[in-house]
């Protein structure tokens, strides 16, 4: 049962991710990306991590993608207004994408593929356990990432103030 759900979810995520790349209209890309985020949240639920799933939806689908949609709608991107890119930029893009592909290939080559197995019923994903882990074992990375967020916030405020 859960294996079937996993395969349906996984194929949905891949299909929606492909639509993100191949959509001609930027708004459609953004909307497909939201669908993709929902399928990933579904994977979190399958792993018994409801907290991660709902935070994923609140942060990505509820906040970040709204801003994306906002920007894309206001810019009203289409073929005519697309900026012409220089040739060397295109070459650089192809080169870096190729390098990334090679890295991924190398990473996959060394893994041995085993059939998908559902994790045993664990309660790591529950909010109490996530909180305890974060504030004991992973306290330093947690604090460092919060400082990163703070600096990003201050940076945004400074940038917004400059225009006046």
């Amino acid at each position: 049962m859960s294996q079937t759900i996993f395969y349906i979810l996984a194929s949905l995520s891949i299909i929606s991710a492909l639509f993100v790349v191949f959509s001609k209209i930027p708004i459609y890309s953004v909307l497909w990306l939201i669908v993709c985020f929902f399928t990933i949240a579904g994977h979190y639920v399958m792993l018994n991590a409801q907290f991660m799933a709902i935070v994923h939806i609140i942060v990505y689908a509820g906040a970040i993608m709204v801003l994306f949609l906002f920007t894309v709608m206001l810019l009203n991107l289409n073929k005519e207004s697309e900026p012409h890119k220089r040739t060397y930029l295109k070459f650089a893009a192809i080169l870096s994408a190729g390098v990334l592909f090679l890295t991924l290939l190398a990473a996959f080559k060394s893994t041995n593929l085993t059939p998908y197995q559902l994790p045993e019923v664990n309660e790591v994903g529950y909010i109490q356990n996530v909180g305890i882990k974060l504030f004991t074992d992973y306290l330093l990375p947690f604090e460092i990432s919060s400082i990163l967020f703070l600096s990003a916030m201050i940076g945004a405020v400074v940038l917004a103030k400059k225009e006046k």
Binding site: L31, I34, Q50, F51, I54, V55, I57, I58, A61, G62, A63, V66, L69, F70, M73, Y126, I127
Partner: peptide, 21 residues
Amino acid sequence: INIGVLYIFGVVSLGVYGIMI
């Protein structure tokens, strides 16, 4: 569900899509 409050919050934050789209 053990995260009921967050669920409400998540659904509320999705409400804006209907208006935007």
